[in-house]
């Protein structure tokens, strides 16, 4: 793992000295803030017996806002990781230093993941606000955040892989967005395929939507976690192979 730590630090630095990170963070918090406001507003006007959702479920679960946010957030976060270095040629100075390929890949990934988690941190305030004004299931809150991290980590790994495939940041952005969208649509298949068919089972199993909905209720299913881990490990492994392969081009 030689080279992990300095590359990790540099990637974090590179992300936060560019305006992109701050734009993304601002948009992210604006959307989440508006979402929270609408949610609280909605829950305060409906009659008690009409609400069949907890606030957490509505924030993390059956909502399209979360996916919209992930869809807009992840591709621009990961697009530059390898594509920019290849276009500018810095990848050559990086790879001719005594560093191992897995260290480079994991360092870049870890930096993106830490940034992603840092973006979610301010939303913990919402949980605290809710906890002050009413009861909140802290177990479900923790499960929700676990879900957000697992799904985001998978998306980031896909983004990293896409960034390694091309010199063009734009193509990396496009590729990531497409795969993320495709994953979401496969999950939506749960609602359009007939119960009992194999296709339906596959869709249910692969559904990011159901994963988040379950976790927002506090249900942590190990099968969901295995699927999340697959979404992380497979693209990372692919990235290592792709980076290895450049030298033989």
């Amino acid at each position: 793992m030689r080279g992990f730590w300095p590359i990790f630090k540099r990637e974090l630095f590179a992300f936060f000295v560019t305006p992109l990170a701050w734009v993304l963070l601002t948009v992210f918090l604006l959307v989440q803030g508006a979402h929270f406001f609408l949610l609280v507003d909605h829950l305060s006007t409906v009659t008690a017996d009409a609400g069949d959702q907890t606030p957490l479920e509505a924030f993390f679960g059956d909502t399209v806002v979360l996916y919209l946010v992930l869809f807009l957030l992840v591709p621009p976060m990961t697009m530059r990781l390898f594509a920019e270095e290849r276009r500018s040629g810095t990848i050559e100075t990086l790879m001719t230093a005594p560093v191992s390929v897995p260290a480079v890949v994991l360092a870049k990934y870890a930096a993106a993941l830490v940034t992603y988690i840092a973006m979610w941190l301010p939303t913990v305030l919402y949980v605290l606000i809710l906890a002050r004004t009413g009861g909140i299931d802290l177990h479900a809150a923790a499960a929700s955040y676990l879900g957000v991290i697992v799904v985001g980590a998978g998306y980031l790994a896909i983004g990293l892989f896409m960034s390694a495939l091309t010199r063009s940041q734009f193509l990396a952005l496009l590729g990531t967005a497409l795969v993320v969208l495709l994953l979401f649509l496969v999950g939506m298949g749960e609602f359009v395929t007939r119960d009992g068919t194999t296709l339906h089972d596959v869709c249910v199993h692969l559904s990011v939507w159901s994963t988040m909905t379950e976790m927002a209720r506090g249900v942590v299913d190990s099968r969901r976690l295995v699927w999340g881990a697959t979404l992380i490990v497979l693209p990372l492994f692919g990235t290592v192979r792709v980076v290895d392969a450049w030298a033989w081009g």
């Binding site: 080279g3 730590w5 300095p6 590359i7 630090k9 540099r10 630095f13 590179a14 000295v17 560019t18 500018s88 040629g89 810095t90 990848i91 050559e92 100075t93 990086l94 001719t96 230093a97 005594p98 560093v99």
Partner: peptide
């Protein structure tokens, strides 16, 4: 690689870093 110092043709560098930051990063990396 640990025994080589290599300067590629275009001297690719990270534009967003300061000179001393960059060289310190490279020293740590090496």
């Amino acid at each position: 690689r640990a025994r080589i110092g290599y300067l590629p043709e275009q001297a690719p560098l990270y534009p967003e870093m300061r000179v001393v930051e960059y060289l310190t990063f490279r020293a740590e990396l090496k």
